[in-house]
Each structure stands twice: as structure tokens, then as C-alpha cells.
Design a protein around this nucleic acid. Structure first.
Length: 418
RNA sequence: GGGAGCGUGGCGCAGUCGGUUAGCGCACUGGGUUGUGGUCCCAGGGGUCGCGGGUUCGAGUCCCGUCGCUCCUCCCA
């Protein structure tokens, strides 16, 4: 093999593109229903945007970013996620001065330097929504509702939504201490990673799946039980609205997210069809992010979903997706005369919106028929000397084999095909 | 980052204790008489057996390294 794609960077071939366009169409359609507008932000940002926005201590920033200097020595980074960029754009363009409440969505590639495996590649694609400018718990629920609607429109059932609240910055600081106190005498018996986490970020201990640690984690105090009055109220209302809308969820007091900007509500949607990467989509509030990135104090909530993962589930549940649209007409040609006529007709019929193709390999009529058949052509027209002379031809309907005699004019051919 | 398994034509696979020209199915190309398809029949093209090194008279088959893929772990979407 002369060249191979870079590790973790995959081609999406025509045979699979149907899943992608289907998914993109659904995202746009559902976003439209909820009145979210599309935003497209650059793939490259100043490194600092992510190190500050996502958090210096996170794995994503620490060891997973594609960071490089440009020719002037500025440190740039291929975006590992889009929330920071969207918020940057919100602040940079003063969107808050025009209309402080913005509902936005995006679709596009992200980059993270990780070990590739099922449901995880280095260039991967996310769709996501961001609702910036309101602390209303009903908005948290709208975002979750949007996610459910999207899954529903794709026919996906049996997914589960995990929900938690990690509180405001002050709550987290306090909760961190509560966890440290709780794990203080247990940590000696727990795994190495947890010992490190104990020092760096005890919240992450809750994520550990090590058998050594599990029993202790099971009984650890949950973050939702240690919220300030306002965060507790907020969380209670989120739950109320969810129940009101009949959206199922389960509280997971061990749910903590890996990016530092999250506050209060956090959630993720998981699927049993995926292996180790079972998280289909995840998100939550980020009430401090806008201010951290230089804007006015502004709350926000959103989520991002992985498209590769979703497509894995779709393939599992839907099986093959034949999105190939049928060709309207194949022009089989014999000789130079027929070919000229075909080129003329093809141009005119294409201008009328019909999909038309013809032979470019000088193949025998038999083979051209076979090709038309393989392309799923609805109609076929043989163009040779007879047709050129008489200006008449037989439009053959491929499925039935029936033929209709037509004058070789755009109007008449179009009339039969339509 | 740690662990395990796997790497043979475009795709899916076979290849027996290492042995002579590396096979099969699908796909692809041509043909089955001169202007008609999806079935069928025949023929053909295409592989330095991931790459590099080693053992051996001889390696796709054994050993080492390397790259890649898959799964787990980790992390997250």
C-alpha cells in the first residue's frame, strides 16, 4: 500500500454516506423545530481557548490535543470540541449585545489524539447544541428534550439518560472536600489512578470502574445531596420539568463530566449497543464559561453527540441503508452518431432536472444494458443510426421491460418519464 | 498510556507437521455472432501473503522488531 490514511483518520465512503446525510438532515430538522440556528466555527483555534475553557487539568487538554505552532510561533490547536469555540464566537461578535439569549447548533469534525478503537477515532464528528443566556431549568430540559426527539426521529429506543447535578463552583469546592474526607481512610486500598485523582480532582474517582474501588465508590456521598439552596432548587425543577414532559431519566450521583466548565446539571445518554464507548451524547450547564472567556456573566447549557457512535448504533438497529437514488434515464449508444445525439439529449434532460447517464467506456450494448440495470436506471433509451435518422426511439422501462415509442425531444421524453 | 487478539488480490475467507507455479467466493473486465439488461456458461486481469530483520536447503506458515486494525482498560462524544 503506497499511502494509508493517518492513524485514527478515516474515510467515509459513498456506501456509508447515506447514514451521514440522514443524521445531518435529522439534526437540522430537529434543531429547526426547537428554533436553534446553525453556527460554523473554525477547526483551528488559539490553544489557550481550550486550555482555559476546558481546563488545564483535564485529559482532553493534557494529552489529547493536536497542538502545533504556526509560522509565527503562535500555538494553535485543532478543536477537540466545539463549545469553547461557540462561546468564543458569542463573545467575540457581541452576540450578547444584539440578543443575549442565543440558541445555536453545529455539526462538524473534532480532533483528539487518543488510541483509536470502536466508536473512537482521532478525527471524529459531533453535532451539538448550545443555549446561551438563560438559567431557566426549563431550558436544561429543552436541551435534553431535543436530544430525545433526535433519537426518536432516528427510531432509537431503549437508550437511557443519566442525570446529575454537580452544583455551582462553590458547591464543587465544598463537595471536593466532602469526598476527600470520605475517601481519606479508604484511599490506601484503592487503585493507583484513584490515589492520583484524590490529590488532583477527587470528583474523578467516582468515574473509576476498578473492582478495588467500586465498593467504596458505591457508598460515596453524591454531589446532588450537597448542593446549595439555589442549585438544589434548580435541580429539583429540572426533575419536575422532565417528569412533566414524560422524559425518562435516572439519577446517577456518580456522574461527573470530564471537562471543567460544567456546572449544575450534567447528563449523558448511553446505548447498550456500543462497547466501551457507550456514551452517545453528553452535556450539561456551563454557567461560568462565557465570563471566563471574556464575556459578561452568562449561563449556558448544551450537549454534544458523537456521530460515529450514533451511526454504529443505527447500523446495528437499521441494518443496511440503501440511500442510492435511482437514475432516471440511461442512454445506451451505438456509434458516433448515436453518441452525439446522446450528449445533446443528456445536456437538455439534465437541465430539466432529470438524472441522466451514458456510456463512457465504449462498451457493447449488452454491457451498457447491464450497467443501466446495475445503476438502477428507471428508463433506457438506445441511440444508434436508426434513431439518429428517424428522430424516434423506444423508451424502455427497465422494471417491466415495456417500451414506449417517443419522438426524441426533451418534452416527449420528459413526459413519459414523469 | 497499560493489557489481549489479529494482519493472505477491492471485500469476505482457505492455505494441514514450514516444502515446489498462493487458492476460493463476491466484485471487476471480456466473450456466449452481427442493436438490448437483471439468471446462466466460459475466459481473463489483479496479491513483493502489512513492513523489516532472523532461523532454515526452503517461510504465507517458526522467532524478533515495527506499523496498522479489533477488543478491554483509560478517556470522552
Amino acid at each position: 500500500m503506497a499511502y494509508e490514511s493517518v492513524r485514527g483518520m478515516r474515510d467515509i465512503l459513498p456506501q456509508d454516506i447515506g447514514y451521514w446525510t440522514l443524521l445531518e438532515d435529522k439534526v437540522r430538522e430537529i434543531a429547526r423545530r426547537f428554533n436553534y440556528r446553525e453556527i460554523r466555527v473554525p477547526l483551528v483555534e488559539h490553544t489557550e481557548l481550550f486550555s482555559r475553557g476546558i481546563g488545564e487539568a483535564t485529559d482532553v487538554v493534557n494529552k489529547e490535543m493536536y497542538t502545533f505552532p504556526d509560522k509565527k510561533g503562535h500555538s494553535l490547536t485543532l478543536r477537540p470540541e466545539a463549545t469553547a469555540s461557540v462561546v468564543r464566537a458569542y463573545v467575540e461578535h457581541g452576540l450578547h449585545t444584539v440578543e443575549p439569549f442565543q440558541k445555536l447548533f453545529y455539526i462538524g469534525p473534532m480532533f483528539r489524539y487518543e488510541k483509536p478503537q470502536k466508536g473512537r477515532s482521532r478525527q471524529f464528528h459531533q453535532y451539538g447544541v448550545e443555549a446561551i443566556g438563560s438559567l431557566d431549568p426549563a431550558l436544561d430540559v429543552e436541551v435534553i428534550n431535543l436530544a430525545w426527539e433526535l433519537m426518536d426521529s432516528l427510531g432509537l429506543k431503549g437508550l437511557s439518560l443519566r442525570l446529575n447535578s454537580i452544583g455551582c463552583a462553590a458547591d464543587r469546592k465544598q463537595y471536593r472536600q466532602i469526598l476527600r474526607d470520605y475517601f481519606a481512610k479508604l484511599i490506601g486500598t484503592m487503585c493507583e489512578d484513584c490515589q492520583r485523582r484524590y490529590e488532583e480532582n477527587p470528583l474523578r474517582i467516582l468515574d473509576c470502574k476498578n473492582d478495588l474501588c467500586q465498593p467504596h465508590i458505591k457508598d460515596a456521598p453524591g454531589s446532588a445531596d450537597h448542593l446549595c439552596k439555589s442549585c438544589a432548587d434548580h435541580f429539583a425543577q429540572v426533575e419536575n420539568y422532565l417528569k412533566e414532559l414524560g422524559l425518562s431519566y435516572e439519577i446517577d450521583s456518580r456522574l461527573v463530566r470530564g471537562l471543567d466548565y460544567y456546572t449544575r446539571t450534567v447528563f449523558e445518554l448511553v446505548s447498550v449497543d456500543l462497547g466501551a464507548q457507550d456514551e452517545l451524547l453528553g452535556g450539561g450547564r456551563y454557567d461560568g464559561l462565557v465570563e471566563m472567556l471574556g464575556g459578561p456573566p452568562t449561563p449556558g447549557v448544551g450537549f454534544a453527540g458523537g456521530m460515529e457512535r450514533l451511526i454504529l448504533v443505527l447500523k446495528e438497529r437499521m441494518g443496511s441503508l440503501d440511500d442510492r437514488q435511482r437514475l432516471d434515464l440511461f442512454l445506451a449508444t451505438l456509434g458516433e452518431e448515436g453518441r452525439s445525439l446522446a450528449l445533446d439529449l443528456a445536456r437538455d434532460l439534465r437541465r430539466q432536472g432529470l438524472s441522466v447517464d451514458l456510456d463512457y467506456r465504449g462498451r457493447a450494448l449488452r454491457k451498457q444494458m447491464a450497467q443501466a440495470n446495475q445503476l438502477g436506471a428507471r428508463y433506457l433509451l438506445v441511440l444508434g443510426d436508426d434513431e439518429t435518422a428517424s428522430k424516434k426511439g423506444k423508451l424502455k422501462e427497465m422494471d417491466s421491460g415495456g417500451e414506449t415509442e417517443v419522438m426524441l425531444t426533451v418534452e416527449e421524453i420528459e413526459r413519459v418519464i414523469e
